[in-house]
Amino acid sequence: MSMIVRRSPLRTAGKYAAIGFYLIFALFPIYWLIKIALTPDALIYTEGTRMLPSALTFDNFAAVLQSDFLGYFTNSLIVSLGAAAGTTLIAAAAGYCFSRFRFAGKRAIIALLLVTQMFPLLMIIAPIYKIVAGLGLLNSLVSLIVVYTAFNIPFATFLMQSFFDGIPEDLEEAAMMDGCTRFQALRKVVFPLTLPGLGATLGFVFTAAWSELLFALMLISRNDSMTFPVGLLTFVSKFSVDWGQMMAAGTLALIPSCLFFIFIQRYLVQGLTSGAVKG
């Protein structure tokens, strides 16, 4: 497609204008977030709408690092990593199953997974609260990990399936001919080839769990088990004046999910593409 050489200068200009538009559109809010975090408190009101602050400070970050936010950060890390690991493991197994087996009930199970993607998840927020409260697990990070894992399994399963579909079946069949069990073949032959897929799934679930707010608000009320979003919102309502610190905390929250995302976004396109080619 890129072989067309003759291009009018007008079109090239239009293309670069579009590139510029999308860059500004995507980056401006992020820039603003970081800018506020670096602006000294005294200047936030006087220089509110200036593009560049006249002075920079790291005081907000220093203040945040000494507050409860480190605890929220740790809680969020535990929950997100736990959910990401759990989901990836379970979804990889299910995705492998969809990719390699034909069995009774397969279509029904796939339909079931699709249905879970369609109905309002908030519908189960009240029942989940009651169940978790009944189990005495309110304010426990374990309940959040289990809930997030379940929520992300359907999408992660389809993602993993598309990665497994991209790996020729002959590879493990050859290994099974040579006397491996299916599980051994999976572990020794297929697993190394799906590492990018596993990475993408991990990153996807991590990002999703990292930003989940409403269920965490419902299930967590004790300060020492709050995740980052809950902590930040409580922060807003408690000290609504200190925007600089809040944005500094926000900037810190941005780091892990953006790191993960930059790593995974290529694989996400890849995974979706191979899925699209197949079906």
Partner: peptide, 25 residues
């Protein structure tokens, strides 16, 4: 490739943070 990574970035920004930033804007 850099462009793609940058323009996809909004997806990675946690929702509550997007909401707070826009409330600020």
């Amino acid at each position: 490739r850099l462009f793609q990574a940058l323009v996809f970035l909004p997806w990675a920004v946690p929702t509550f943070l997007t909401a707070l930033t826009f409330a600020w804007l």
